[in-house]
Write a protein that binds this DNA or RNA. Sequence first.
DNA 1: CACGTGACATACC
DNA 2: GGGTATGCCACGT
Length: 112
Amino acid sequence: MVNDAVLTRVENTLAVIPEGVVVSYGQLADLSGLPGRARLMGRALRALDGEHNWHRVVRADGKIAFPDGSWHAHEQRQRLIEEGVTIKNNRINLKKYGWKPDLHTILSSLQY
DNA sequence: CACGTGACATACC
DNA sequence: GGGTATGCCACGT
């Protein structure tokens, strides 16, 4: 289980991640005011299950966290491709689609 | 209480 | 690139 406070933060953060942009679990934790707690993000996303931009969260190496062939992996891949994110060799180029410093301005509404 | 296990990350080698 | 080690924390056993 995950604290409501954490869930709220994660929800708010996910809500401001633009289309075509992906963040890592560690970044999501960081942006949510929970540095060093990447593992908790997986739990949080599991708890939120589906109703948010969970598909824009990938591992720090650019790979999708789910096992290849799993339903979730396929679904996430599809949604990202629909947003214009290209995936080659089962991996995403974070230099291209990752979080960029200039995007921090849109976090000003989150106030942590 | 002590481990093992995760939608993980970083620092090494 | 891969492999190991450590940090992280909630949960199950």
